[in-house]
Simulated assay, not measured.
Amino acid sequence: MVETTPAEAAALPDELEAPGEPVLAVRRYGAGSGHRGRGPGAPVPVVLLHGLGGTLEEWDGVARILAAHRPVFSADLRGHGRSGDASWCLDGFVDDLIRLLGHLGVERPLVVGNDLGGAVAACAASRRSDLAGAVNLDGVAWPDAERAARALGMAADAAGIQVDLARAYATEQLAASRTPQGAEEFARCLEGLRAMGDEGPMLEASVIRAAAAADGLVALRPGPRGMRAAMDAFDEFVPERVYPRLLVPLLSLVSTGSLPAHPGAPSRFADVVRAAASAELARTAPLLRTGPIEQTAHHPHVTHPAVVAGAVEGFLAEIGG
């Protein structure tokens, strides 16, 4: 029998459901660890949200690190993982989060989200003053034509076309990744994920959680149509409107590592992505702080969980959590 240390035992997760429309699948870390108390001096709880096409499994590495010191929860967004389906709109995702927080009964939580989840966290920070704060990890909007023009060294009209091409390419790539596949092809996909190194098991678990099998085929939630609709919901996030309205501190972390090759991508795709990152890092607002994560180009919570957990703990220390 393998024994666990007290810290490891504290981090063991259990599964919950937040009722309502839609039902939300939740994972709780730190159950029974003795640090769920409320009141002065109690550690700030952390709620983790994944991005487009992901599941709560992506946060497992970060969650286990954070759960050594505080209660941690992660959730599947609507239409993802094991949560229920609902309309694709940014306000709906934010409403789900607020309902989830009420169900969990957590006081002054820090909400941390990646990608779409980061946009949801930022919007919640502009609507709720009862949060400790929020972290937006790579919830980066596409740059407007003027910002893109300065970064790409071209006229605004031409830069706007490049942004549209980049967005269309990203959307179709994400939608294509959800095409139903045969069971054998899916098994090979899982084998490839397992071979990816330390992050492989988390990625494999996330894909399995998102999978639904029928008639000899395996489909991932959300499907191609849902993925396009979720991208449209993400486009509703306008930082220029959200950040000036923040009610609690927000940390925007942006991955700035080298981008991998994208076969078939528009010629200026990488430049547009870098322009979006630069625009996010340059934003200012009274309760906003920004910073780069240089180790990777995307999904640092999966590839570098200790780095992200350290950034979260550092932010909590700054804001008194």
Rank of each mutant, 00 (worst) to 15 (best):
R28G: 01
R28P: 05
R28I: 04
G30C: 09
G30Q: 14
A31R: 06
A31E: 04
A31Q: 08
G32A: 07
G32D: 05
S33D: 06
G34I: 13
H35E: 01
H35K: 08
H35G: 01
H35L: 14
G39M: 05
G39D: 07
G39I: 12
G39R: 05
P40F: 02
A42H: 02
P43S: 04
V44F: 00
P45L: 01
L49S: 14
H50V: 13
G51K: 12
L52C: 12
G54H: 05
T55M: 04
L56Y: 01
E58A: 14
E58W: 08
E58D: 12
G61S: 09
A63Y: 01
I65M: 08
I65Q: 12
A67R: 06
A67Q: 10
A68D: 14
R70I: 15
P71N: 06
V72W: 00
V72Y: 00
F73Y: 15
S74Y: 00
S74I: 14
A75Y: 01
A75K: 04
D76R: 04
L77M: 14
L77H: 04
L77A: 08
R78M: 06
G79Y: 03
G79V: 10
H80R: 14
H80I: 10
R82T: 12
S83C: 15
S83H: 07
S87D: 13
W88N: 13
W88D: 15
C89A: 12
C89I: 08
L90F: 02
L90D: 09
G92H: 11
G92T: 08
F93D: 09
V94M: 13
D95R: 09
D95E: 14
D95F: 03
D95K: 11
D95L: 14
D96W: 04
D96P: 11
D96M: 07
D96T: 12
L97S: 12
L97T: 15
L97N: 09
I98R: 12
I98L: 11
I98Y: 00
I98Q: 10
R99L: 07
R99N: 05
R99W: 03
L101G: 05
H103G: 07
L104Q: 06
V106K: 06
E107T: 15
E107N: 07
E107R: 11
E107Y: 01
E107W: 01
V111H: 00
V111I: 14
V111F: 01
V111K: 01
V112D: 03
V112Q: 02
V112T: 07
G113E: 08
D115Q: 09
L116Y: 01
G117C: 11
G118R: 10
V120Q: 04
V120C: 04
V120K: 02
A121Q: 06
A121H: 03
A121T: 09
A122G: 08
A122M: 09
A124T: 12
A124F: 02
A124Y: 01
A125P: 13
